[in-house]
Write a protein that binds this DNA or RNA. Structure first.
Lengths: 323, 323
DNA sequence: CTGAAAGCGCTTACAG
DNA sequence: CTGAAAGCGCTTACAG
């Protein structure tokens, strides 16, 4: 920084002003400063800026890289954060790297707030919220100390099952998501619609993965008669079901209709073309970032719990039953 | 930090020593310091440590979150980096966020070195290497200023095609990866084996995505006679081909055999069970991290270009031709 | 082990 | 605009 100042012939304070885009420097000086910085390969030291200015402009995001839905979310979070002048610091949870470790790293970076994607217990969330402003995205938790953004999973599930019933399906199975985020509400929604129409509810225990979908497909094939429709816990599970059924020689939606949940990018792929319940990804990202900003920049302290609407997207994996 | 020191009744310097795990403090003092820190919620400020100590223990990794192969790599990079005492800072390239932006961010964090996953031109890599020790993972580039770790793509491709020939296939099509990393070498390997056996080479232009695989599958169906085997540019493309073929009512490997490339996690899924050429992911991650460490901690300055072996993994999508 | 001091690369407030 | 000064939370080297 001193080198840049010397080269341009101005004070270090002015260079600082130019790089932060503050007023107090002429356009000509700005150009010369940037020019000199480029030649010298100078780049402001984020750590020093942060240290001195006492303000972190970093939003920590705790996520699972292998989770496609998280990837969709962080891609939406980046532009939202940038709009508010924040950088995003990613903290990755991997099979060899527990959440606590990723959290400590994020806190070491002094992120101003943390957006927590995915599953967490109330105890974990509460403990973390005591250390840093926290927005939990996904889990249906409530508390005074943290914000949440979640989807209306129960309503989404009802939309999916009502769609199948309207197509004429009577024998509809749900492959659920166990204890994962939203799974309980999706189960509830499924049960409610089946009950309403006087249909028997059948739930195959599953998870939010392709493997579990493929496994559940084997269970389905053991049913006699074969169900005419499946409501999967999420898109990954649905994709596993579709592929496994096709591999076993069945057609989708000819023999079995399948509905997913999430509205992930994978569901849109032309060879999948999955009917699904879309969660509003960019709206969720927006709400999460704004919740954090409100606490950080506007001084909000009371908890805020946002629920985003879901929407049924009818594509190519659902049709009226043939049997 | 001062609060912790006061609470325990020691100097700040001692607290610093305890947190860095250096000698000069008794076990009892260490315990008391950690105890007090936990009660006070104290956590060392990474930025300040870095600023003062002049050493960054951060490895920047530039990657694409939506790329499953990158995800496999970063999951392998984390434990390797930790082994050498380095933290990983992720820089994400997304559709709305160009590489240059992610690079600036990483450099702002003063990462000690950068591991660059995925595609980059020689000019980009050279320019970046002038600013920070750089290891490019994937692209077949050579230069004096940076290290690379890549796979023996040509040999891998030959393994795949030889496998198909040995099964009895004569009509083998390659769906390529265009200008992406390794695509040229994989094409070369395919052509070499076809030529060696006096077979005609047919290449369908593709990309490293499921969509391109699905699109290529339509092209395949227009071939008369239908090829009996396909060598796909990578696993994602292969998965798209398999699914599209099955959707069109064909069986894999009954009607068409399919081989992928990468050995990604997706290829292992039971409903895919893809025959593929595995790149040594953990070996690649290890080589990349070690290349960076050698420059950082051992003072190596000459470039190092590592090529990792590939391995054919025969699974369920290849079989002798029926026709 | 302590305690005082210097300094990392910045930002900030102030007198000019 | 300048220039000098203080200070962020640490680490480091040193005399005791």
């Amino acid at each position: 920084m001193a080198d840049v100042a010397a080269k341009v012939g101005v004070s270090r304070a002015l260079v600082s002003i130019v790089f932060r885009g503050k007023e107090g420097a002429s356009q000509e000086t700005r150009d010369r400063v940037f020019q000199a910085a480029a030649e010298l390969g100078y780049h402001p030291d984020t750590a020093a800026q942060l240290l001195r200015s006492h303000r972190s402009r970093h939003l920590g995001v705790l996520y699972t890289p292998a989770e496609p839905f998280h990837v969709d979310l962080i891609e939406a979070i980046y532009p939202m954060a940038e709009k508010h002048g924040y950088d995003v610091v990613l903290g990755a949870q991997t099979p060899t790297r527990a959440m606590t470790k990723a959290v400590e790293e994020l806190l070491g970076f002094r992120t101003a707030a943390v957006l927590l994607l995915g599953d967490a217990t109330l105890a974990e969330v509460t403990r973390l919220a005591a250390r840093v402003p926290l927005v939990a995205v996904g889990p249906h938790l409530r508390g005074d100390a943290f914000d949440t953004v979640s989807s209306d999973d129960s309503r989404g599930a009802r939309l999916a099952v009502e769609h199948l019933v309207e197509l004429g399906h009577r024998h509809i199975v749900h492959v659920d998501g166990g204890v994962k985020a939203g799974a309980a509400d999706r189960r509830r929604g499924y049960r409610a619609v089946m009950r309403k129409h006087g249909l028997p509810a059948t739930i195959i225990p599953g998870a939010y993965t392709e493997e579990s979908g493929a496994l559940a497909a084997r269970e389905l094939l053991r049913c006699d008669p074969l169900p005419t429709a499946v409501f999967a816990g999420n898109d990954r599970c649905a994709v596993g079901i579709v592929h496994a059924l096709r591999r076993f020689g069945l057609t989708v939606p000819g023999d079995v209709s399948v509905v997913g949940f999430d509205g992930s990018r994978a569901a849109q792929l032309p060879h999948i073309d999955l009917t699904t319940v879309r969660q509003d990804i960019s709206g969720t990202a927006e709400a999460a970032v704004e919740s954090a900003i409100e606490r950080l920049d506007d001084g909000r302290t009371e908890a805020k719990h946002v629920i985003r609407k879901t929407q049924l997207i009818v594509r190519g994996t659902t049709a009226p039953p043939k049997r």
